[in-house]
Nucleic acid binder design. Structure first.
Length: 269
DNA sequence: CGTGGGACCTGAACGC
DNA sequence: TGCGTTCAGGTCCCAC
């Protein structure tokens, strides 16, 4: 579910309840969430580790420990929250990490795709990721593009190109830039590349400010259980058949690489 | 290198 | 009401 703006919002919301706390151990109900380690190894590894800081890299939540890192990828339906130990566990809670203040960091995930990684080195997980779209300069973006030939939509979903974009913000940034999802990188003019760069940054920045996109009940919520507000701003994502907000042409849907792409056939060329 | 398909999972929405 | 199909915010692995 979550893409960069949602992951960023969740990470910020975990700072107050987690920074400075020490983990006491872990209970794992679905071992795949922490594979390849066994639940025992994972629990022993996390016990006694103190949380230094919380950040984000691509779609990973990065919890920096006094030794090593705990990374969380929420995939489609993962959620994190901190709750008092005596509060009953909600359904689909697959891993519970004990804290030294009587609370727990709880990981829930209906579809069981999300993963927790306890590693010594950050690069174990993040070495295959491209740059952060909000940290990159135009010049670096141009260099990145120069080496690519694929469709724009596929590029945005490729985490090795830029880290953090997903289906919603890929479609929204292409609309904002007036670019068709099937265009290939090698056909872009200098003006179009700059427009695309600006659109990616603008869309992500606005979405973070609005604390992400909650599409339907039971979807994304932040670490405090609050929904995001960006759904009201969506121009094309999930609006198949509805009028384009700019020109009123019906928004079209197209399947690319197995994922749906939403775009305005009039505004995006 | 790029693309398409299947796998991994479960639930909601929709058609008949 | 009930059943089957399709779709979902993601990523990995394989074949071509």
């Amino acid at each position: 579910m979550p893409e960069l703006p949602e992951v960023e919002t969740i990470a910020r919301g975990l700072q107050v309840p987690l920074v400075g706390r020490t983990f006491t151990g872990a209970t794992v109900a679905w071992p795949r969430t922490i594979a390849p380690q066994s639940p025992d190894e994972f629990s022993r590894g996390i016990a006694g580790r103190r949380v230094r800081s919380i950040g984000r890299r691509g779609k990973y939540i990065v919890i920096t420990l006094d030794q090593g890192y705990l990374l969380v990828h929420l995939m489609m339906t993962g959620r994190l929250k901190v709750a008092p130990s005596d509060q009953p566990l909600e359904r689909y809670t697959h891993t519970v990490l004990g804290l030294d203040n009587g609370c727990q960091l709880r990981f829930r995930d209906v579809r069981k795709f999300g993963r927790l990684y306890l590693v010594e080195e950050l690069s174990t997980i993040t070495s295959k990721l491209g740059p952060e779209p909000l940290a990159i300069q135009l010049e670096e973006f141009e260099e990145l593009l120069a080496r690519r030939s694929g469709r724009l939509k596929s590029l945005l979903l490729n985490q090795g190109f830029l880290a953090g974009m997903g289906n919603i913000y890929a479609d929204e940034s292409l609309f904002q830039a007036g670019l068709h999802p099937q265009r290939t990188a090698d056909t872009l003019t200098a003006v179009e590349r700059e427009r695309w760069y600006g659109a990616i940054q603008a869309v992500l920045t606005r979405a973070i400010r609005m604390r992400g996109t909650t599409l339907r009940d039971g979807g994304y919520v932040d670490a405090q259980g609050e929904a995001g507000d960006f759904q009201s701003q969506l121009a094309v994502y999930g609006r198949t058949g509805e009028p384009c907000r700019r020109c009123a042409t019906p928004v079209q849907r197209l399947v690319l690489g197995g994922r749906s792409s939403h775009f305005c056939p009039q505004c995006q060329t």
